[in-house]
Design a protein around this nucleic acid. Structure first.
Lengths: 249, 249
DNA sequence: CGGTGTCTTGAATACCATCAAGTCTTGTGG
DNA sequence: CCACAAGACTTGATGGTATTCAAGACACCG
């Protein structure tokens, strides 16, 4: 039996208030809205909006879902927890990202998704979304691109973890996040400055390092004038040099 | 301008001789053949068959392709080479696997694919294959499953590289390969025995280790009676214990 | 026959984890 | 408003895992 979870924060399933979403153009939300606004009533997709506080689990493996959630606002992490309680973060999720593309095709994701900040997300019913999706070549194209990009980022993380030092990994993480935020219009330019809600243990879990070592590398970066952090914001002080650290091999 | 490469070994594009392919049921080949054997001539997909010797590159990044190749026979590896010549293998490709699913949607893969053994593969023209694919809900379903599995394996590798010791990594690699070969009917049972054309440097490149260390861990495994290797075959002598080594956390 | 590729083994070293102690902040309830 | 607890971060000391370097054994091939 399929369960709709997190009804506790469900808002009215009426008109979406995503019109102002910063990541709108990167998301399926807009495309879905457009498709659904066409005259054919068959194109309507049931949906709901939810808000969860930081640290809350948005979805977990071994649970069944009939929804496909997409992040509207806030940061989340796709994380796998091993039996001995060590954790590996597979990717950070930003506004416009699917919580799990696997949920488009099956009822259970194979990792947990945890809110890092407070997160607002939109949940589409899988059946309806799939019908809409595969009826529209444009949406299939967008999905394919999202898929390719997701896989490319996973591959990059494999290379980072397999073949790069802790400094290279950290530099690359920072640059990747800055890029992704800039794409969404969520970065300040000159100097490049981004909101940075990650705790060092998030970074450690993502980069396959210990929190202690992350602290040391970040201190080095700060001491050498590469970055500055304060009040949950991160400033890239020397973009050129940070790129060189990231690309070093 | 798109280039068809490797014409050097192209065989007649007439009837496929894949009928005996061991991995047929896991591949799109069968489905494509079936779809193409329907009365509608529009369903015909141009294709060709190729054979490359071991160590040859089947496709590389920064090249343009209008084909999407699928392995028919032999082992290959998806590998990224860093500027300093260190290498990371993203996955091993077995019969029935897409050389790169990215080639379904774009003209350039983002890694190289190298033949480990001699490899025979079938190359479909992208345009025709896509038309066929997205015209058939069954094929879209199969493609989706292939995607999900590909991503799941990438995620597992991330966890291995980020959070597991060299012994756990090696044990898991052996078990994964044995599973995938068994699915294809390419493994002997009791004792579990598989063809194993990998050199230790392949294993090192896949597990983010040095060849020297791979040699040491494999020697340990052999000495402790977990596995035996000889003549490009690998025998799992103590499946239970190997599973315990792999799952230890 | 030398050359090349593969594997093994030992010694020295590097990178990062773990342990431990301490600071600083944040949040909470009295 | 303060006391206290918990979480986040820092720093130094120590140790383990895996790398690098080096040398040698072995097989295969032209």
């Amino acid at each position: 039996m399929l369960a709709r979870r997190f009804d506790e924060t469900a808002e009215s399933p009426g008109l979406p208030r995503c019109a102002t979403c910063a990541a709108r153009q990167f998301s399926f939300c807009q495309a879905v809205d457009e498709a659904a606004s066409r005259p054919t009533p068959a194109d309507l997709v049931e949906q709901s909006e939810h808000t969860v506080p930081a640290r809350r689990i948005i979805c977990g493996p071994r649970e069944l879902y009939d929804i496909v959630p997409i992040i509207c606002e806030g940061w989340a992490a796709a994380v796998v927890v091993l039996p001995d309680a060590t954790r590996q973060i597979l990717s950070f999720l930003l506004p416009g990202d699917f919580v799990s593309t696997a949920l488009l095709f099956g009822a259970t994701p194979d990792y947990s998704v945890e809110a890092i900040t407070e997160v607002r997300y939109r949940a589409f019913m899988r059946g309806g979304l799939r019908r809409l999706l595969f009826g529209s070549p444009d949406l299939v194209e967008r999905l394919s691109r999202a898929w390719i990009e997701e896989k490319a980022r996973a591959d990059q993380l494999i290379i980072d973890l397999g073949r790069r030092t802790s400094e290279e990994r950290l530099a690359r993480l920072i640059l990747n996040l800055a890029d992704r935020l800039a794409e969404r219009g969520m970065a300040q330019e000159d100097p490049l400055k981004i909101e940075f809600p990650l705790r060092q243990h998030h970074i450690a879990d993502a980069l396959g390092l210990s929190p202690v070592h992350v602290s040391k590398v970040m201190s080095d970066f700060r001491r050498s004038g590469l970055i500055d952090t304060s009040e949950r914001w991160l400033t890239i002080l020397d973009l050129e040099r940070l790129r060189r650290v990231a690309d070093l091999r």
